[in-house]
Amino acid sequence: MTPAIKQLESAGVDFTVAEYAHDPRTPAYGEEAARALGLSPDEVFKTLLAKLDDGRLAVAIVPVSHWLDLKALARAAGARKAVMAEAEEAQRATGYVVGGISPLGQKRRLPTFLDASAEALPALHVSGGRRGLEIRLAPADLVRLTGARLAPLARS
Rank of each mutant, 00 (worst) to 15 (best):
A11Q: 14
G12F: 08
G12T: 11
G12C: 08
G12S: 12
V13I: 15
V13E: 08
F15W: 04
T16C: 10
T16L: 14
T16P: 10
V17E: 09
V17S: 02
V17P: 04
V17T: 11
A18V: 06
E19M: 08
E19P: 14
Y20F: 15
A21D: 15
A21N: 14
A21K: 14
H22I: 13
P24Y: 07
P24T: 09
P24G: 11
R25D: 15
T26H: 09
T26C: 15
T26Y: 04
T26V: 15
T26Q: 09
T26W: 05
P27Y: 01
P27F: 06
P27V: 14
P27A: 08
A28W: 11
A28K: 10
A28D: 13
Y29W: 10
Y29A: 02
Y29I: 02
E31Q: 15
E32K: 03
E32S: 08
A33D: 01
A34D: 03
R35T: 13
R35I: 09
R35M: 06
R35G: 03
R35C: 01
A36V: 01
A36T: 02
A36F: 06
A36Y: 07
A36E: 12
L37D: 03
L37T: 09
L37Q: 12
G38T: 13
G38A: 13
G38N: 06
L39W: 09
L39D: 07
L39S: 07
S40Q: 07
S40D: 11
P41F: 00
P41W: 03
D42S: 14
E43T: 15
E43R: 13
E43L: 07
E43M: 03
V44T: 05
V44Y: 10
V44S: 06
V44G: 04
F45T: 02
F45W: 04
F45A: 00
K46N: 05
L48Q: 05
L48W: 00
L48F: 02
L48E: 00
L48V: 09
L49G: 05
L49I: 14
L49K: 02
L49D: 02
A50E: 00
K51H: 02
L52V: 05
L52I: 01
L52D: 02
D53Q: 08
D53C: 04
D54H: 14
D54Y: 15
G55T: 12
R56H: 10
R56T: 13
L57D: 13
L57T: 04
L57N: 02
L57C: 10
L57Y: 07
A58D: 07
A58F: 05
A58S: 12
A58N: 12
A60Q: 05
A60D: 05
A60M: 01
I61G: 03
I61N: 04
I61S: 04
V62L: 00
V62P: 01
P63V: 05
P63D: 03
P63R: 00
